[in-house]
């Protein structure tokens, strides 16, 4: 296990380095340079030059790159261009919000999708397909809905129409119930598409495992169908499910940007959009690297979980 972890860790570090490098060089591809793009037509030659120096754009490319790396390693993320607030501080303020939404979504969607998918597979295995067909159909529609549109429709119905949830307003951490109501719709929107993905993969994985020879072996030993389902089928089906949970985290991160925007939640996603709108490349590049790191770490964790679930995994 230690050797496996070490190997995966090295792989992860290589990917992270690649990610950082890619982001760095993509930014240098901006026509002109980041400073002039950022300034638009507002700055004169001298002021522009000052901005360049401030951003370190006058230094040789290699030094810029090494400096970028050093800053990331020492978590010296710099300041926003317009408001002069340390980026690290902004990130620390926004991160708990985004992570709460993401975590709540993951927990909620796993709690719904795994029993649902398992039940659908179990029934389909016995030739009763109605739940399976219904689930597959609903999952398909949800998957194909643009999530911003789904969010607006839910907002229209449940906030503006029925008034169950607040559509905007401050996040109040001291009043948990208000917080739950405030974040409920965003989490529901994200969970719907997560459930669509996870319930479908659970259904497929369990159905496949139920047709495996070792399930028949367990049945031939006289174990009841439910025991076989829980002891053998779910344990084996957990492997593909774990992989997909890890991968769908990427979609979830993308989704948080959209729901934060719609529900005006001051998370990392809104920070990113405001960064783009104010052409603050320093902020944007930091956040994009941050998102990628988060995703890479989640995938690393998935690999480790997979390894503990499946004794066969070598490398």
């Amino acid at each position: 296990m230690a050797e496996y972890t070490a190997k995966k860790l090295v792989q992860m570090l290589i990917t992270v380095l690649g990610v950082i490098t890619l982001v760095f060089f993509t930014l240098r591809l901006i026509p002109g340079d980041a400073a002039s793009a950022m300034a638009g037509d507002t700055l004169s030659g001298e002021a522009l030059q000052a901005l360049r120096e401030q951003m370190g754009l006058d230094e040789p490319l290699v030094n810029q790159y090494l400096g970028f790396l050093r800053d990331l390693v020492t978590v010296d993320l710099g300041e926003t261009i317009t408001t002069r607030i340390p980026i690290a501080e902004l990130l620390l303020r926004a991160l708990p919000i985004t992570l709460s939404i993401a975590l709540a979504t993951i927990v909620l969607s796993i709690l719904i999708s795994i029993p649902l998918g398992t039940l659908a597979a179990f029934m389909a295995h016995k030739g009763r397909n109605w739940l399976d067909n219904g689930l597959t159909g609903a999952a398909m529609i949800i998957d194909l809905m643009p999530s911003f549109w789904m969010a607006l429709v839910l907002l229209l119905i449940f906030s503006l129409g029925l008034g169950w949830f607040p559509a905007s307003g401050q996040l109040n951490w001291s009043d948990p119930w208000a917080l739950v109501l405030r974040l409920a719709l965003p989490v529901i929107v994200l969970s719907l598409s997560q459930v669509a993905t996870l319930a479908r993969i659970t259904r497929t994985a369990v159905l496949e495992v139920l047709n495996e020879d070792y399930v028949r072996t367990a049945r031939s030993m006289g174990w009841s169908e439910l025991r076989v389902l829980f002891r053998h089928a779910l344990k084996n089906a957990a492997l593909p499910i774990a992989t997909v949970v890890g991968l769908s985290f990427g979609n979830l991160l993308g989704g948080t940007v959209i729901v934060e925007f719609i529900f005006t939640i001051p998370g990392v996603g809104n920070l990113l959009i405001s960064g783009i709108n104010s052409r603050d490349y320093q902020l944007v590049q930091t956040l994009i690297v941050f998102y990628a790191l988060l995703f890479v770490v989640i995938n690393f964790a998935t690999d480790l979980i997979y390894k503990t679930l499946d004794p066969r995994v070598q490398f």
Binding site: E212, D213, Y214, R216, T217, A218, H232, K235, N236, L239, L309, D310, P311, R312
Partner: peptide, 10 residues
């Protein structure tokens, strides 16, 4: 098939 008749993760 002995290769598939035993539960692989047990």
């Amino acid at each position: 098939d002995p290769m598939s008749s035993l539960d692989p993760v047990m």
